[in-house]
Amino acid sequence: MPEVQRMGLAEKEQQLIDDLNMFDEWMDKYQFIIDMGKESEGLPDAEKTDDLLVKGCQSRVWLKAEKVGDVLVFRSDSDAIIPKGIAAMIARLYSGHTPEEILAFRPTFVEKTGLAQHLTPTRANGLSAILKRIQQYALAYKTA
């Protein structure tokens, strides 16, 4: 997907916002997220190690980062499908960008899609935990 990679983070985020906001009904937004979860390849069991677990999620969510050339590639998994979809959505957004780009980027999709208001606080915490983990990876790879 070379086009996607040329796109900036802000542009990609806008696309994600448009995708989610296409649906008026929340059930449809969830269906979209569930579909993302089902399409996500996830991680092989051997890679689902405890150090990749994102703390603060109600279900188990694993997030893995690798550096490919200059950019980071994120892969994720969860034992529940909705978090898996959300993690996959976020992994896709941030994959293909340098640590510096990621660290400079301030995501707004959580507010703009209504995810923030719509998720219960524990779930919203889970989501922000995933975002925080992305930042931590970016920081680690930047200094590494």
């Binding site: 969830y30 109600q58 529940a80």
Partner: peptide, 21 residues
């Protein structure tokens, strides 16, 4: 075949307050 967490999220959308965990 389904995670209890996913069930509770969708049921909540349908107005049903149940507890999962």
């Amino acid at each position: 075949k389904v995670h209890h967490y996913d069930l509770a999220v969708l049921m909540d959308q349908m107005g049903v307050a149940v507890r999962a965990g």
